Computed example of a mutant assay.
Amino acid sequence: MSATHTDTVTVTWNSKALDEIVSNDAGRPVLFTNARVLTMDPLIGTLRGADVLLVGALLVGVGPGIITAAGDDNAIVVDCTGMTVVPAVVDAIALAGGRGHRSEYVATLTPGNTGDLLVVPDALAPDVAGALATLLTRPEEVRALVAAGKPVLWSGTNAPGRATAPEAGIPAAQDLSGSPRVGVWIDNNDFLHQELTPAGRYDETRGGRPHAYEGRYWIDGDRIDYLDDLGFWAFGEFRGEELHHAGYAMRLGPRA
């Protein structure tokens, strides 16, 4: 299906660029050009007639004049005349003055950050809050919503191939037979022993106290989610050969 049609809605804003982005298998850069850009970066601030350059999932450039290299780089160009570009995710703590260093401002249109951005007409974006309100209350007016460099909404409708949210509800148990992450994970002080079973259950021993916590778990990439039998949720992260969870760093013990 052509990207110029999503369901029954015809895409009228930069439809050719959308087609190119959707079929972009060659890693071509994507350039949103000639926009008013509210970066929310305390150093860069607000830019007019500016460009935002994405390569894959990352924002790699912002400011005027990037368009001059678009031909050299075989970039996909999205004309944003009359549009405002804002971060799609806002760092509310930073906006309230709760971060002390610019490097901590993660949800800004800063080179090196994830390419999450929102494009709406200038008239509907007096500021970042106004642009986000447009997304929430008048999504049909959104020109583009991009997550990690991939379109989610375009010209007021769902973009082709967009990600879909997981189904609501607790997922079915995973069959983790043969997973290298199944076994007993032990922290450096031998205080916490966390057994991950092939049936998707975990059983923690803490300080020699068996079955301190028990429940279900699910692994998605390097993330592990826990649902304890008491009803609370927790998570951990696999980093190389370690499992980090609730302040503990654990390693897989010898297999029986």
Rank of each mutant, 00 (worst) to 15 (best):
A92F: 09
A165R: 06
H101E: 14
G247C: 00
R216M: 13
G178K: 03
A75L: 13
V146C: 06
Q174P: 00
A133I: 10
A75F: 11
R181K: 15
T114G: 14
G215E: 04
D225H: 08
I66K: 06
E141N: 10
T39R: 02
A147K: 05
N14A: 07
P64L: 06
E141F: 12
R162W: 03
A249C: 09
D116G: 06
D220W: 03
P151C: 04
V77R: 02
R201V: 11
Y213P: 02
I219N: 02
L196T: 04
D203G: 08
D116L: 03
L135M: 14
P121Q: 10
A3Y: 00
V77S: 04
Q194A: 15
L31C: 06
T137P: 09
L230R: 09
R255A: 15
G169Q: 01
Y217P: 04
S23W: 07
D220A: 13
F232W: 11
D7Q: 09
I224L: 07
D222G: 03
G208Q: 03
G183D: 01
L31R: 03
R216P: 05
A212Q: 14
V30K: 00
Y202F: 15
A159L: 06
L132N: 02
A163Q: 06
S155H: 01
A159Q: 10
R162Y: 01
G71K: 05
S179A: 13
V182I: 15
A172P: 08
A94G: 05
D229F: 14
E204H: 04
I219F: 04
L109E: 00
G27T: 03
L109A: 00
D116Y: 02
K150F: 06
V182T: 10
V62I: 00
K150Q: 12
